[in-house]
Every structure is written in structure tokens, then in C-alpha cells.
Amino acid sequence: MGAISLIVLACAGIAFSAGGIIVAKLLVRGSTNPQKGQAYECGIPSEGTPWNQFNVGYYLFALIFLIFDVELVFMYPWAVVVKKVGMMALVEIIIFLFILFMGFLYAHKKGALKWM
């Protein structure tokens, strides 16, 4: 169908979600109760806000992922032409991966992949 299909699918997604939510809204008569709005924390009133600074170890993983993912995108065009280029492609990718792997080993040595 071509690129228009993406718009169609996105619209279908919106329609599907919105349809469900609107139907539910129409069917359900909710009750009001001040405790209903509280955040769930096992029945105990929540203390403080989750939106303050706290130590997330995921940050480093996001950075390393970014590096690897960019490299990964470079590999897609390479992968398409491997068979045509032949042995030269293998040599190239070995060099490419070697550099990448060195970076990975460096990060590993530095403890970036160790969970805090």
C-alpha cells in the first residue's frame, strides 16, 4: 500500500485505544472518594515523591547502548552487501568489531557494566 499505510495503522491504533477508553467512560459511573486518588503503596500512604533525585544505575547502560546501537545501524547496510563484496567485507567488519569490542572491554574494565 505504501507509506500511507503507516498513517492508517497509527489512526487504527488511536481509534482502538480511544474507542475502548471512551466506551468504558460511557459505561462506568465512577464514585468519588478522596482515598481513590492516592498512589498505591501497599495500603500505606505514600511518603515523599518519587520524582526526586535518586541513584539510578541504568544511566550508564543507556549510554553504552547508544554507542552500540549507532554501530549496529552501520552494520545493516554492510550486511546487505556482504555476499557481493566477499572476503573484503569480512576483513572490514573484523576491524570494525575489533574497535567496538575494545571499547566494550574498556567499559567492562572500568566497571561500567557492573551494577551499582
Binding site: 498512589a39 498505591y40 503503596e41 505514600s46 515523591t49 518519587p50 520524582w51 539510578v56 544505575g57 541504568y58 547502560f61 543507556a62 547502548f65 552500540f68 546501537d69 549496529l72
Partner: peptide, 23 residues
């Protein structure tokens, strides 16, 4: 956006997890 600590931790976890396994 849930303003819930469990949700926040869960979301952080799944963020790290999904991007990692993407590779």
C-alpha cells in the same frame, strides 16, 4: 507519570532492559 515508586522503578528497569536486549 504514575507518581508511584513501584512504577518508576519498574519503568527504569524496563528501560535498561529493553535497550540492552535490543542489541
Amino acid at each position: 507519570s504514575s507518581n508511584n515508586k513501584y512504577s518508576l522503578l519498574g519503568a527504569m528497569r524496563s528501560g535498561a532492559q529493553i535497550v540492552s536486549y535490543e542489541l
